[in-house]
Amino acid sequence: MKKHLILFGITLIMSSFVTAQECSKYYPMIEGASFEYTNYNKKGKSQGISKYQVTQVETSGDVTKATMAIELIDEKGKEIYKTDYNFTCTGNMVTVDYKSLIPSSMFEQYEGLEMDVSGTDLELPNDLSVGQQLADANVSVKVSIGGMNMNTTIDLINRKVEKKESVSTPAGTFDCYVIYSENKMKAMMVNQTFPSRVWFAEGIGMIKQESFNQNGKSMGTTVLTKYSK
């Protein structure tokens, strides 16, 4: 498995737009917003792209819910998988569906098979600050193959806001908070932990993600290559 590896009368439209923007700093909860990421292996070779689009946004009281559609495409331009996940903004917190934690390589490996998925959602506060500790998250995937269950668990632990940093991608240059976490993966008899860093920019969301092996060497990166809101 590849280990490397993100959503109206005029008055109603405007009020919904403002409410969503105020609610979420790091996830643009705007219908039609789209984002394209390119995935690179440790040698810098493109491994395909991931396309995200916010397809629905609903606000009720102080809660805004959005749906993000995802299309995964391999390096040859072949569609690997289509899915969607939800995220919710309440008060000062955005909660992202735990399904978003599943690596694209897993969708490719288990293409055509039914997956039973459970977990704990990912939380991202609006008021990030350097040194801040963030809650853990996890996802568990069970796949039945020939009467045998293949179980994979991914835990995001030791999450913290590590630093502020400017980062450049083909989509532009962005001021970001860098969130460090350790991704603990357990699959069959394999139990490994891989550090990861994610760069978040206000008003856009994830700009870059990089995974490392246990020796601190890069295993691959994902970068924002284009977006529209």
Rank of each mutant, 00 (worst) to 15 (best):
D74G: 12
D74F: 10
E75C: 12
E75A: 15
E75W: 10
E75I: 00
K76E: 13
K78Q: 15
K78W: 05
E79G: 10
I80V: 14
I80A: 10
I80K: 10
Y81R: 07
Y81T: 01
K82Q: 14
T83W: 07
D84G: 12
D84L: 00
Y85W: 14
Y85I: 12
Y85L: 14
Y85N: 10
Y85H: 14
N86M: 12
N86I: 08
N86R: 09
F87L: 15
F87Q: 11
T88R: 15
T88I: 10
T90H: 14
G91H: 11
G91T: 14
V94C: 11
T95W: 11
T95Y: 12
T95H: 10
T95K: 14
V96T: 15
V96P: 00
D97S: 08
D97Y: 06
Y98C: 09
Y98S: 10
K99S: 08
K99P: 01
S100G: 08
S100Y: 07
L101I: 15
P103Y: 03
S104D: 13
S104V: 09
S104F: 08
S105N: 04
S105K: 00
S105T: 07
S105L: 03
M106K: 02
M106I: 04
F107N: 01
F107G: 03
E108V: 00
E108A: 11
Q109C: 02
Q109I: 05
Y110G: 01
E111G: 11
E111R: 12
G112Q: 03
L113H: 04
L113V: 03
L113A: 03
E114T: 07
D116Y: 12
D116T: 15
V117K: 04
V117Q: 02
S118F: 00
G119S: 06
G119M: 06
G119Y: 05
T120D: 09
T120S: 09
T120R: 00
T120M: 08
T120Y: 00
D121R: 03
L122W: 14
L122P: 08
E123G: 05
L124D: 09
L124E: 09
L124A: 11
N126D: 08
S129H: 06
S129I: 01
S129E: 06
V130T: 06
G131F: 04
G131V: 01
G131S: 02
G131I: 02
Q132L: 11
Q133E: 15
Q133W: 00
Q133I: 06
Q133T: 14
Q133N: 15
L134D: 15
L134K: 13
D136Y: 04
D136A: 11
D136C: 04
N138S: 13
N138F: 07
N138E: 09
V139M: 05
V139Y: 01
S140K: 14
S140C: 06
S140P: 06
V141Q: 01
V141I: 05
V141H: 01
K142S: 09
V143C: 02
V143L: 03
V143A: 00
V143F: 02
S144I: 05
S144T: 11
I145T: 03
I145F: 02
G146E: 04
G147F: 06
G147A: 05
G147P: 04
G147H: 05
M148K: 09
M148V: 06
M148Y: 05
M148Q: 09
N149K: 10
N149H: 00
M150P: 01
M150D: 02
M150R: 04
T152E: 08
T152C: 07
T152P: 07
T153N: 13
